[in-house]
């Protein structure tokens, strides 16, 4: 069963003739343990797609299913619980709470869900350790580098029982080295069974995904072929010997 399934999702901003179509009948399904990249130029609707998948926005039409449950059948409170428990968001600009340490940022969603501070700290420390940030647990975001901040944000997204990770240009503010490190971590999470959707216009980023779908003016226009077997990896050298 797909962790995330979009069925003919549309989103229109504004009304009537002035309406702007951000998404137009998008079908997409993401299995557990797979990574899908959504590629497209600015304004193609990538972020809107992620917002809708992450229950931050409501679609104008169509249906979103998470773990087979229709979002339209859920109350706002149930959706909030879903975000706390199953959905992790990673944004380009980290969006960490300045007043909280790295660890507190990570444990926030667990505590919001009613977990005791002690247990939440244990889980948060484990999540930070997994991303190699155990030693920065008590640092405040302002004391962390960009790459570290994004890793904290990733730890926050993945902590707990995260089933679906939605990353919107997660490496947009990082240099290539740190960007690759973050993508490796996301990839590792994916290998552990998390369904990942990455929205980006960066082909290098997108190439980490098993499947790349191309978004254009709110429509999915194309997608890459499923990955070939490992034996076809060796390519003929084409030029210049």
């Amino acid at each position: 069963m797909s962790v995330l399934e979009l069925r003919g999702v549309s989103r229109v901003f504004g009304h009537g003739a002035n309406g702007v179509v951000a998404l137009d009948g998008v079908h997409l399904s993401v299995e557990a343990g797979t990574m899908v990249a959504v590629m497209g130029p600015s304004g193609s609707g990538k972020s809107t797609l992620l917002s809708i998948a992450g229950t931050l926005e409501k679609p104008s039409g169509g249906e979103v299913l998470i773990d087979g449950t229709r979002l339209s059948a859920m109350s706002g409170r149930e959706q909030a619980r879903l975000r706390r428990r199953s959905i992790g968001h990673v944004f380009q600009d980290y969006n960490l709470l300045a007043g909280f340490t790295a660890l507190e940022n990570v444990t926030l969603s667990l505590e919001l869900d009613g977990m005791s501070v002690r247990r939440a700290r244990a889980a948060g420390t484990a999540a930070l350790d997994r991303l190699g940030l155990g030693h920065r647990a008590s640092s405040f975001p302002s004391q962390l580098s960009g790459g570290e901040r994004q890793r904290v944000a990733l730890a926050r997204a993945l902590v707990g029982d995260c089933r679906l990770l939605l990353a919107d240009e997660p490496t947009g503010a990082l240099d290539s080295g740190h960007g690759e490190a973050v993508m490796r971590l996301i990839n590792a999470a994916c290998k552990r069974g998390v369904a990942v959707v990455v929205a980006t216009h960066d082909a290098q980023l997108a190439s980490w995904a098993e499947r790349v779908v191309f978004l254009r003016d709110g429509r999915l226009v194309d997608q890459t072929a499923p990955p070939p077997g490992p034996e076809s990896l060796l390519l003929p050298v084409t030029s210049g010997r």
């Binding site: 409170r77 975000r83 428990r85 992790g88 968001h89 960490l96 919001l112 926050r156």
Partner: peptide, 12 residues
């Protein structure tokens, strides 16, 4: 933005 972030990680 911080409040929006809280909402995104599931604060009601």
């Amino acid at each position: 933005r911080a409040l929006g972030m809280l909402g995104a990680i599931g604060a009601s």
